[in-house]
C-alpha cells in the first residue's frame, strides 16, 4: 500500500518536474536546443506503465502546461493528446524496438509534435519560425536513451512500479 502510494507520488513528481524544467530558462544561445520535456517524460510513462497514462491525463497535463506558459489554453493539451494517442496505438511494438530505433521513433513523434504546433501557431496568426526552431526535436531524440535509462534505473532502485 505504502509502496503503491510512493510510486504514485514518483509518477506525479516526474511529471511536475518535467513542467518545471519546461519553465526554467536556458542561456540565450542554448535556447533553441531546449527539448520539450513534458512530452519526453509522458512518453516514458506511456511506454512503461500504460494503465496510468490515458488521453485524459495527457489532456490535463497539457492544460497545466498551457496555464504555466500562458500561450493559448488547449494548445499543448492538443499536442500531448495526439502524442499519447500515437504511442498507445503502437506501444506494443515500440517497447520491443532496440534503443536506437526507439530514439528514431521518438524523433518522428517530436517532429510531428512540432508540425502540429506550427499549424496551430500559423492558424492563430504567427509567422514561420526560424530554422533553429527545428533543432529541439533532434535534441530531444538524442537525449531520449539517457532519459529512458535514467528513469528506468531510478525506478528499479526505488523498487517502484
Amino acid at each position: 500500500m505504502n509502496r503503491q502510494r510512493l510510486s504514485a507520488w514518483w509518477f506525479a513528481g516526474t511529471l511536475l518536474f518535467a513542467l518545471l524544467s519546461m519553465l526554467v530558462p536556458l542561456p540565450a544561445p542554448l535556447e533553441p536546443f531546449k527539448p520539450y520535456w513534458p512530452a519526453l517524460v509522458l512518453l516514458y510513462w506511456t511506454l512503461e506503465s500504460e494503465d496510468r497514462v490515458s488521453l485524459g491525463l495527457a489532456f490535463v497535463l497539457g492544460l497545466g502546461a498551457d496555464l504555466f506558459d500562458g500561450v493559448l489554453l488547449g494548445e499543448q493539451a492538443l499536442r500531448l493528446c495526439a502524442l499519447v494517442f500515437i504511442v498507445l496505438r503502437f506501444r506494443s511494438r515500440l517497447r520491443f524496438f532496440p534503443m536506437w530505433q526507439q530514439a528514431l521513433a521518438v524523433l518522428a513523434l517530436l517532429v510531428n509534435d512540432r508540425i502540429l504546433l506550427l499549424v496551430v501557431r500559423l492558424l492563430s496568426g504567427a509567422t514561420m519560425p526560424p530554422a533553429s526552431w527545428w533543432i529541439a526535436p533532434f535534441v530531444g531524440a538524442a537525449l531520449w536513451p539517457f532519459l529512458f535509462l535514467l528513469l528506468d534505473d531510478l525506478r528499479m532502485r526505488l523498487r517502484l512500479q
Binding site: G70, L72, L73, G74, E75, L78
Partner: peptide, 23 residues
C-alpha cells in the same frame, strides 16, 4: 476519445483566442 479530446482542445483554443480568458 481522441477525437473528443482534440475537439475539446480546439474549442478551448478558439474561445481563448477570441476572448483571451486564459488570463
Amino acid at each position: 476519445r481522441l477525437i473528443v479530446y482534440l475537439a475539446l482542445a480546439l474549442v478551448l483554443m478558439v474561445l481563448d483566442h477570441r476572448n483571451g480568458w486564459l488570463w
